[in-house]
Design a protein around this nucleic acid. Structure first.
Lengths: 353, 353
DNA sequence: ACCAGCGATGTAATCGTTTGCAACAGTTCT
DNA sequence: AGAACTGTTGCAAACGATTACATCGCTGGT
């Protein structure tokens, strides 16, 4: 199984050539200072405020730093400065790929400003409450980006002294937290108007959980475009709920059926479309389908899905920037709204005559 | 107010509200100690080694802790203990949903043992080298889980004094790092034997990048089941490469075409299948398709994809456990291999007569 | 000349915890 | 009764950086 000659290291070697370090430990500020013939304060300044030093000393310190291979000790700096250098992203279910792109955007924006990205999963063993207690701690993170709208204002209030919190994607009604969100209503409105333009008049939809803020906002958007949005198919954003909606659609007499259906997520739309196709209904000839989110794979279905795309990376990076501004004490927008985009593919076509 | 037998501290605390904390800052060990009438050392021990204290003091400290709302300062502890309490997962492209599930498994296992999960993206702006320099730092993390096989042994050697590293999913040829991987060869072998059992004799495949370790291992597995695995369709694990493979398949005379194709990823298999379906080829009647990875959505395609499932959460949590053992100085397996699983769905059927 | 002002650097306190060592009060053993 | 423990607790020194304040030469204005 193992390649012959595979070395079995228990302890990994550390290269210890001529690189100057005291003992086995890493070089400290004091080591650099000794080598450069200056005080630790000077070395510290060379790192944080180089403009304060004369060119000569700055160079000498620089040389000593490379000679020793010095790397700053974060714990020491953070202790002294009373910060942590980390931002926690609290997501409900890290395993949900929807968040992957958002995290990527956040990570890039945060790292660029010297922050680390720490991830916490509110659905992890122990539950939401435990996750909140663990991560809403000023000594663990300088700020929190909360992507879980199921957290209540009460949960948050129970953790006094928590670092600043910014909501992203979802939000909490009544909690005065800055947020970075998609214009959800505009998204469903866009979808509905697109279908209207294609001649559809009976337009159905697959909702999310009834108490979900995204669900409510998206229903509102529908109402802006449609005289009577009706009650839609119950759903929960999952593929399975799309399959169930398809079954209900099939059970309805053809004359009463929607000729187009908007899923409140790409997954429910894809589940809906897939089940219908398996039952011999053709999309978009017999029914048009529009999704919501703009996740990658729905573009590659046998019938590529028309959808409302969320700028996921932007949502992440914007949330990160808002939080960093908040931490820096700058004034921040209470609510940053990003625009959705209609991506026309093949699953939505003209209404059947 | 106080329980009857409560030992009264020598120094009486300044009376203020019930939430005892010095000024605006959070309560420190010293505040708790003052309130409980003991020394800071005792409070520290109450937290880390409660067995060392008498029941009375332990209770008194406990009361003082809840009264002050004390929460430990991580920077201070980490500085003193010479650790960070964090583990970095270095992934190539955080936006790739394949890693989401793995991260979820890692996060759960790490949090359970008191570690935080820090994520780093080797594809982030600045490139791999910058990401490595940033995260392979003993003062930032106690250990690294590297999921990027494109890193070279030289890159790693250039960072002396780095914390312990464990590879997951991918690995680096010639680097003596412990690893946690899928038995990739067993995966493709499983797929090939399944197709053989269904009567297929001309079995094609869509590979990954030629120098990729996963690709090589999977080709090897094919060779264990098939007399002549041939050269396969070139690919890179993406949906698009599956589409290209479909075009090549369509260009081949029917008598020479594979009657079954194994994708080295679910995405390439789905791209292949989707393109054929759009061109009017029916799966599995005219051609069988098997994927690799077991990502969620391919189960919900119009023709659900038969695939080789990787235990993604397990890979993540196992890698985390191996790393924690390594950090604890326990001996670890140089190579932990997890078994893949054949998931039979509808895209693979009997060979056409 | 003298003093204010300035630029460059050093001194030392500080951040909040952990932990080796010492101290001390009871036992128990001889 | 003294020695040798044992179980609890306190004292104080780390850990490695940052930064307010002090110091020291100089320069230039008067």
């Amino acid at each position: 199984m193992l390649a012959p000659g595979f070395p079995h290291p228990i302890v990994q070697v550390m290269g210890n050539t001529e690189s100057e370090r005291t003992r086995q430990g890493a070089a400290r500020l004091a080591d650099v200072a000794r080598l450069a013939g200056v005080s630790v304060a000077t070395v510290s300044r060379a790192l944080s405020r180089p403009d304060l030093l004369s060119t000569d000393t700055r160079d000498a310190v620089q040389r000593a730093i490379t000679a020793t291979g010095y790397r700053m000790n974060h714990a020491a700096r953070n202790l002294r400065k009373g910060r942590t250098g980390a931002i926690v992203a609290l997501v409900p279910n890290l395993g949900n790929p929807f968040f992957a792109k958002i995290l990527a955007g956040m990570g890039a924006a945060l790292n660029a400003q010297g922050y680390d990205l720490l991830v916490g999963d509110t659905m992890a063993p122990g539950g939401r409450h435990r996750a909140l207690r663990r991560f809403l701690d000023p000594s663990r993170a300088d700020g929190i980006i909360l992507l879980d709208g199921q957290v209540t204002a009460g949960d948050l209030a129970a953790l006094p002294g928590a670092p600043p919190v910014v909501m992203a994607c979802e939000w909490i009604e009544g909690a005065p937290l800055p947020r970075v969100v998609l214009d959800n209503a505009a998204g469903t409105e866009l979808a509905a108007r697109h279908l209207l333009a294609l001649g559809h008049r009976r337009i159905g939809w697959i909702g999310g959980p009834g108490d979900n803020v995204l669900h409510k906002a998206r229903v509102k958007g529908l109402a802006r475009a449609l005289p009577d949005p009706g009650s839609g198919y119950a759903g929960d954003f999952t593929l399975e709920s799309g399959v169930r909606a398809a079954e209900r659609w099939l059970d309805t007499p053809a004359a009463d059926r929607p000729t187009a259906v908007i899923g409140f997520s790409d997954e429910s739309a894809a589940g809906f479309m897939g089940e219908l196709q398996r039952r011999g209904v053709s999309v978009p000839e017999q029914v048009s389908v529009v999704g919501f989110d703009g996740i990658d794979w729905v573009a590659h279905l046998p019938v590529p899905l028309t959808t409302i795309r969320q700028p996921k990376r932007d949502l992440g990076s914007t949330a990160a920037r808002v939080l960093m501004a908040l931490i820096a004490g700058q004034p921040v927008e209470p609510c940053t709204v990003l625009a959705p985009q209609l991506v026309m593919r093949n699953s939505a076509g003209p209404a059947p005559s």
